[in-house]
Design a protein around this nucleic acid. Structure first.
Length: 650
RNA sequence: GCCACAGUAGCUCAGUGGUAGAGCAACCGCCUUGUAAGCGGUCGGCCCUCGGUUCAAUCCCGAGCUGUGGCUCCA
């Protein structure tokens, strides 16, 4: 069984655990930062965007810059074998087989040489050539010869399937003294490129395989980017810098949220007290919302009998993303890679009436999946993580309504966190493909249920054909953060397959046994990854209700310690997470240190405050609010917390 | 897993073929301070690991481990 859709599109890595409905949600990486202001994005298979990136001037500039870079590389490192160099979402790259490793000095030289070539105002000229002419032109370029053969014959995949028709014509583009096999388009002349709007040093060269095949030649990929104006380039570089500053791995350590210790294991984060508080606060909040929405929480263990996963179909086909089974007496157990089978067994343990449905079973369930070492990344890609999982067992006539409720809950949850910029990505089946199971009726009604849900919610959504799970359509929630990076959050999927495999049923009103449908859903996806996203989203400055420490009391002199402690106790009794910094240090020093921790409120207390029962409130933003009566401050913060406000003052 | 780069004090990082330094943190004093670093002192290192070269290796070479970036965009 293959229950995740293979989202092998741009920026979304293919999931290893093809057996899991949530496979797509714990591994998705952020999209590169793109020039969103101009609305330019690459089109993706199966759906159209308002303006095709491929048709834009920016695309031609980048494509042309890639050729210019190849020319400069050949001049610097003669003997280099060139391969391909396309524009990408936020720039371009070119893959080379180099005669020696490339160094920083080379990159500098190449970049400055590119600027000189551009300044030469060379036209880009296109010429049609015959295959033989092309072979002669590129006789020293084996990769180009391979491309020519493929183009002339059409490409086939490893199963012999034709995936590219034979090309009718071949074209070559020339600028200055460099000619490349290319379909274009390019700028008419290098003068259309602003030499101050290109950069090839912002991202280090890296390895890449010829045709992405790890069995083939390892190449060196040099990345570059180019914009229409130097200001656009600066803006882009600035955003990259901002993104680096928000890196959740750096903030995670600075704010004492989590660490990853190799002795414990890579990909296995340890949550420090403050990080655990963050997690716990989020979890308790969602748990409450779910209970209000009719979910029942259940708990299942961390290992399960191998036979359970054999029944579900997850084993042994997906052994590559699961850990080796553990022998216990004469039985074998696996670390739990997903929660669905456990919830199914909970449903199955007693008969259900149609009146009981929908039954919504939820669990913050920790699962373990093998991720290749090179894929691990902070909290966003780990080997053990907790899914805010739920499985809804529904009658077919309830699917649409339940879908709407799930999306509503998601909208509420993300909206509460100031994550309003999100959209839905609806994956539907490709009617031409035979890989999907189930009747047309079921597909049509399920797909319609999802579309209807989006429409009724007034949610932005895109429909992507061929992106459904093989058993049913799905909806992914994609969030755009403050830096315009897209992150995939939760997913909602309709699944008639597992009910079949586990022979689930309910007794209908006519006293016949019917098969329920399952809806798999997760909103955060993985709690770990979601915390990582939140850290970056807020740049570590969490809303008051989420902040691990909400206020720190700082006495001005040692003899104010007593009052500081009194303030702390007062706030603690009012339900705040508060500390008093009574260390033997001076006040300025404490302010300097505590502001680095991004505590929402620093409460400075001295003689005047002690005399008047006030606190001097300094916000995380460095704004000094002056003295406030302690009771007024307490009431204000309590209200902000109760409202899950994103503000620091009410 | 593959390629590139990196690994020196708790943290951020200098440095050298003759076994090490700074700032911050920690600890001990002094200072008693109204909003971003008061002063002095002390502690702290198998310079990632294992091999090799060398009279001598933290430094050079090889392997391993760990981390970081990339390995998805197909003329």
């Amino acid at each position: 069984m293959r229950c995740c859709s293979s989202t092998n599109k741009r920026n979304i890595t293919r999931c290893n655990l093809k057996g899991c409905p949530y496979a797509s949600l714990f591994f998705v990486q952020q999209r590169p930062i793109i020039d969103q202001a101009q609305g330019r994005r690459p089109t993706q298979r199966g759906h159209t965007m308002q303006e095709r990136y491929e048709d834009s001037q920016l695309y031609r500039i980048r494509h042309s810059a890639a050729h210019i870079m190849a020319q400069a590389v050949l001049e610097r490192l003669p003997g280099t074998k060139i391969t391909i160099g396309p524009p990408i979402e936020d720039g371009f790259y070119y893959d080379f087989e180099l005669p020696r490793p490339i160094e920083d000095a080379d990159i500098k030289w190449i970049e400055s040489r590119m600027k000189k070539i551009i300044a030469g105002n060379h036209p880009f000229t296109v010429r049609e050539v015959t295959p033989d002419e092309a072979r002669e032109l590129f006789k020293d370029q084996p990769y180009k010869l391979e491309l020519i053969d493929d183009l002339v014959n059409g490409r086939v995949d490893e199963n012999g399937q034709q995936i590219q028709a034979p090309a009718a014509t071949l074209t070559v583009y020339t600028q200055d003294k460099f000619t490349d096999l290319c379909r274009g388009p390019h700028v008419a002349s290098t003068k259309e490129i602003n030499p101050n709007a290109i950069n090839i040093s912002f991202r280090p060269p890296s390895g890449a395989y010829w045709r992405g095949d790890e069995k083939r030649q390892q190449l060196t990929r040099i990345y570059g980017t180019a914009f229409e104006t130097p200001e656009d380039l600066q803006d882009y570089l600035h955003r990259l810098e901002e993104a680096r500053k928000r890196d959740h791995r750096v903030l995670g350590e600075q704010l004492e949220l989590f660490i990853i210790d190799p002795l414990v294991g890579k990909g296995l984060p340890l949550w420090l007290p403050r990080g655990a508080t963050l997690r716990d606060t989020l979890e308790r909040w969602l748990r409450k919302r779910q209970a209000e929405a009719g979910y029942q929480h259940v708990v299942s263990p961390h290992i399960g009998n191998l036979n359970l996963y054999k029944t579900s179909g997850h084993y042994p086909y997906y052994a590559d993303s699961q850990y080796t089974p553990i022998d216990v007496d004469d039985e074998q157990f696996m670390l739990k890679p997903m929660n669905c089978p456990h919830h199914i067994m909970i449903y199955k343990h007693q008969p259900h009436s149609y009146r009981e449905l929908p039954i919504r079973l939820a669990e913050f369930g920790t699962v373990y999946r093998y991720e290749k070492a090179g894929q691990l990344n902070g909290l966003t890609r780990v080997r053990g993580f907790t899914v805010d999982d739920a499985h809804l067992f529904v009658r077919p006539d309830q699917v649409e309504a339940e879908f709407i409720k799930v999306v509503e809950l998601a909208q509420f949850v993300f909206g509460s966190l100031g994550m309003t910029e999100f959209r839905a990505r609806v994956g539907i089946r490709d009617p031409q493909s035979p890989k999907y199971v189930g009747s047309d009726d079921l597909w049509n009604s399920s797909t319609q249920a999802i579309i209807n849900a989006c429409e009724k919610m007034g949610m932005r959504y895109t429909v992507e054909e061929g992106e459904a799970a093989f058993y049913g359509p799905k909806l992914d929630l994609v969030f755009r953060d403050a830096l315009k990076r897209d992150w995939q959050l939760g997913t909602v999927q309709i699944d008639p397959n597992l009910p079949e495999r586990f022979d689930l049923e309910y007794i209908d009103s006519d006293n016949t046994r019917k098969r329920p449908l399952m809806i798999h859903r997760a909103l955060f996806g993985s709690v770990e990854r979601f915390c990582g996203i939140l850290i970056e989203h807020f740049a570590g400055a969490f809303p008051v209700w989420l902040a691990p420490v909400q206020a720190v009391v700082i006495p001005i002199r040692e003899d104010h310690n007593e009052y500081a402690e009194r303030v702390r106790k007062h706030l603690e009794a009012a339900g705040l997470r508060v500390e008093a910094d009574l260390r033997d240090k001076n006040m300025r020093n404490k302010i300097k240190e505590q502001r680095k921790m991004l505590i929402p409120y620093l409460l400075i207390v001295g003689d005047q405050d002690a005399a008047n029962e006030t606190v001097s409130v300094r916000l995380r933003t460095d704004e000094d609010r002056g003295a406030m009566p302690l009771n007024a401050f307490t009431a204000m913060v309590q209200q902000l917390i109760d409202n899950h406000s994103l503000e620091l003052v009410g």
